[in-house]
Design a protein around this nucleic acid. Structure first.
Length: 623
DNA sequence: CACAAGATGAATTCAGCG
DNA sequence: CGCTGAATTCATCTTGTG
């Protein structure tokens, strides 16, 4: 996201220490690190039970969701100190798929549903946390209830969908709803539990129509485990390859065969984009993961958490470099086409937990026609687009759409194929929609706000020009996508979080946290563009935030000392979020697409510097 | 001076095909 | 395996206009 344009920097009259607009919000309770730095649930001390296996292997078992007790048991059972990691893993998988724990599971399910928790939640939590720590399970269930309650209550302060008909169903939707009602209760339950329809239907088919929810979930769970098992082995093989060939790192690439011509060198150090681009999983699609296949190295684990974003289609080698500067964490590539009606292919490097993700409500419409119902009337059948391409910083001119209209008016009814092709090419290139007979138009700024998940008129006013508005929006996060990723933080920070927001832009991260109803105790924001800073501060006021907002302008002038001072003042940061400038990486740039070292994009290294400062200081504060 | 329009391709990926 | 064609892409710069 996040505008850090160098060409039009107008930073002459800033204070020497670059701080702007000191918080006019009175200080709110500032928590201490010790209160809020809740570690992940799996942060058990390894030294007691991990005899016989390396730290790394132990960590990856933990990352896969096995409890330390289970691991200890598996080590015992497979020969104590001399047991083979692979053998241990097999035993662990046996535990999680065997019927024995599952039957003890059903007893717990009965107990907990007896306590009034919804069965689907109980099953999901058991699946993710195991069945050993009842206290933890009930805690998580309570959190779930709260989250669900909150996501059901509409947020009055943000009016995302202000179309009158937003809550009334279109005819297509009604049809969909009808289909839903024909589905069995189990299928509905599974879909509610965020399994994809395909996956759920397949599992039901395999388990038989009479199977209980537990049985089907067990089946899906076993299938997931098997998939992870395969991936673990593939990863293990790869690791051996790496040690053998001296640190050759290739992600997402099929196993390389031994004897191969030396053209392979060109592919070295590459991170390939996944297809489909769904990262660790998106709602309503297959491929949902609850654990990372490539664990986060110890050095990169949170808290503090961080979330870094940039364009997925960067020049070769860029993502490998980004990853290598961010603790070798593998990027999560996600296309926002799975969250809204517009494409947005982005890579996210983060150390957030990935289980328990949920969507913010209401979810946006996923097709152009649903998002903009008025276009339906004019949409010709030969324009088969249902999704828009990436929203960028420039829009088509009025002259262009006029020329297109004239071309269309030359024909009665359907234009010849050659004309159709030409029109469609322009439509795709400029993201045009049908707004009248033979009439095409680019999206209005408020329509872009809607697609990107911002409240209406978020970027309006404050003296921002039309072009600047498009520019800021084109550089922004897709809020629903980012919120889905950040949702994992909600149970971890019930008292709110302290955020360091770099390259804040129009505040996509802040809007996401707000829509997740995660309280922002402190936001320290760094953003070079004055109009964008104004947009954030007016959002802060309009949504009646009770936390503190401090805005800085130039990331290069935010020195380490200042960061540490801020951390002392506020008790540290829980989340460092931001996407560094993409100008020199983006495909649309014909002048200076020169890679990470470009004038703008090299600010990525400032992100790294600041993140490292925050993490170092956090470690010292914990001691 | 602010703003809008127009001109300016290449890098990358992928499906299809021989 | 290599080739080809199609599709996509958080943009920059100059010029014209009021």
């Amino acid at each position: 996201m996040m505008e850090h344009s160098g060409g039009d920097d107008s930073d002459e009259n800033w204070n020497t220490d670059d701080e702007l607009e000191i918080d006019n919000f009175q200080s709110s309770p500032v928590h201490s690190m010790s209160e809020t730095s809740v570690g992940p649930a799996d942060a058990t001390s390894p030294n007691l039970i991990q005899k016989g296996i390396s730290d790394e292997t132990f960590a990856s078992f933990i990352e896969m969701g096995f409890s330390s007790e289970m691991i200890a048991r598996a080590i015992e059972e497979t020969g104590g100190e001399n047991s083979e990691p692979m053998l241990i893993l097999e035993t662990l998988f046996k535990y999680s798929t065997s019927t024995e724990p599952s039957s003890s599971k059903s007893k717990i399910i009965n107990d907990l549903t007896g306590m009034g928790f919804p069965e689907e939640n109980v099953i999901k939590v058991l699946q993710e946390y195991g069945d050993e720590n009842i206290d933890e399970i009930t805690n998580v269930l309570l959190t779930y209830e709260e989250v669900e309650k909150m996501s059901k209550s509409k947020d009055e302060s943000i009016n995302i969908n202000d179309d009158d008909n937003i809550y009334s169903l279109s005819s297509d939707e009604e049809e969909d709803k009808l289909n839903y009602s024909h589905e069995t209760g189990i299928l509905q339950d599974l879909i509610k539990m965020q399994y994809s329809r395909e996956e759920a239907a397949k599992a039901i088919e395999r388990c038989g129509e009479d199977a209980s929810v537990e049985e089907v979930v067990d089946f899906i769970c076993a299938a997931q485990m098997a998939r992870q098992f395969d991936e673990f082995f593939a990863e293990h093989d790869k690791k051996e390859l790496i040690t053998n060939s001296k640190k050759r790192r290739v992600y997402n690439e099929p196993p390389r065969r031994e004897r191969k011509p030396n053209t392979a060198m060109a592919n070295d150090e590459l991170i390939r984009l996944p297809k489909p681009m769904t990262g660790f999983g998106v709602p309503n699609e297959p491929g949902l993961m609850t654990q990372r296949t490539v664990p986060i190295p110890d050095v990169g684990r949170g808290p503090p958490y961080f979330y870094y974003e940039n364009v997925a289609m960067a020049p070769k080698g860029v993502w490998a470099k980004i990853s290598s500067h961010l603790y070798d964490i593998m990027p999560e590539f996600v296309d926002s086409i799975y969250f809204c009606a517009a494409a947005r292919k982005r890579g996210y490097v983060h150390n957030l937990p990935i289980h328990n993700r949920f969507q913010i409500q209401p979810p946006p419409h996923c097709t152009i026609q649903e998002a903009f119902p008025l276009t339906k009337r004019w949409w010709p059948s030969w324009d088969r687009r249902r999704k828009l391409n990436c929203l960028v910083t420039c829009i088509a001119s009025a002259q262009l759409t006029n020329r297109l209209r004239e071309k269309l008016e030359n024909h009665d009814g359907e234009p010849p194929l050659s004309v159709q092709k030409e029109i469609l090419e322009s439509c795709r290139k400029w993201n045009l929609v049908w707004v009248g007979k033979n009439k095409l138009a680019p999206l209005e700024a408020d329509e872009m706000e809607k697609l990107l998940g911002f409240p209406r008129d978020h970027t309006r006013g404050g003296g921002i020009s039309r072009t600047d508005r498009y520019k800021s929006l084109g550089n922004s996060f897709q809020v629903d996508t980012v919120a889905y990723h950040l949702s994992a933080l909600k149970p971890l920070f019930p008292k709110g979080i302290n955020v360091l927001s770099l390259f804040t832009g129009i505040g996509g991260g802040e809007v996401a946290l707000h829509r997740l109803q995660i309280r922002m105790n402190v936001v320290v924001s760094v953003e070079i563009s004055e109009v964008n800073r104004n947009i954030l501060s007016s959002f802060w006021e309009q949504t009646n935030q009770t936390g503190i907002l401090r805005e800085f302008s130039d990331v290069t002038k935010l020195d380490n000392h200042t960061i540490e001072r801020l951390m002392d003042e506020y008790g540290g940061f829980d989340l460092v979020i931001g996407g560094s400038p993409c100008n020199n990486l983006a495909g649309g740039n014909r002048i200076s697409r020169v890679g990470l070292e470009g004038d703008h994009s090299s600010l990525f290294f400032e992100y790294c510097r600041i993140l490292e400062t925050v993490r170092g200081k956090s470690a010292r504060m914990r001691r």
